[in-house]
Design a protein around this nucleic acid. Sequence first.
DNA 1: CGGCATCCACATGGATACTG
DNA 2: CAGTATCCATGTGGATGCCG
Lengths: 124, 124
Amino acid sequence: MSESIESIQVWCAGEDWCPVTSTATLICRKWHPVIVHRLLNAGPMGFTELKDEVDGVSSKVLSDSLEDLQSKNLVDRSIISEKPFRVEYSLTSQGAELEPVIRAMEDWGQNNLRAPADANSGRF
Amino acid sequence: MSESIESIQVWCAGEDWCPVTSTATLICRKWHPVIVHRLLNAGPMGFTELKDEVDGVSSKVLSDSLEDLQSKNLVDRSIISEKPFRVEYSLTSQGAELEPVIRAMEDWGQNNLRAPADANSGRF
DNA sequence: CGGCATCCACATGGATACTG
DNA sequence: CAGTATCCATGTGGATGCCG
């Protein structure tokens, strides 16, 4: 994994191409959906802000994940030249279009995993 | 990963629980979304049928993935006692509820990855 | 602040061969 | 048909420490 977006696009030209597999290849990595979710909800953010939002992730892993997301054109990184300089991560237009996927994941998790603690749900 | 559904539910009782992270933990594995997709589209299937549907997966990995999906209560496995016996994989009710997630992934892939080959799309 | 360097552990995937 | 048994490669994550 961590293929470049180009190699994925080449693959997409092939015969047995599947949109589900392709999308999974891009976002099926432990922290990717949460990172996108936080950027959707709270807008552009700096590294440390993002690290605080994404509970449990380490600097190294967040850094790796962001690099992967950039290579896949889902996240943009821009350097704000102030003193001291800041870095800002945001979703690309393609990344922002992942919203339906992320929201569906959010809904499913709420309905199917939080249920055991709730009294009003029939599930579990 | 490959935690049992029980340990995930325990985790869901915690403070910093996040539905997106939780859902990601369950289905973010290379072949999981495709497997669910095929079971949604074509209904219950035997092992070999499924292997044919999921292009590129090996027996071992499909077997591992199905075992993981069963442990998470997303897929059911039933043995049909005929001669010769058959095995049938199907989605549990929870698994079936993943449909919005999978469809969203399918849509995104179609709109954002197939685009380079299409002339009528503005993207890329 | 926004990382990178290092090292390590382990989960996961892939290839091949074999079985009841 | 429906897998299991090996073995191996690598992706990915996690911990710690350091840097400009």
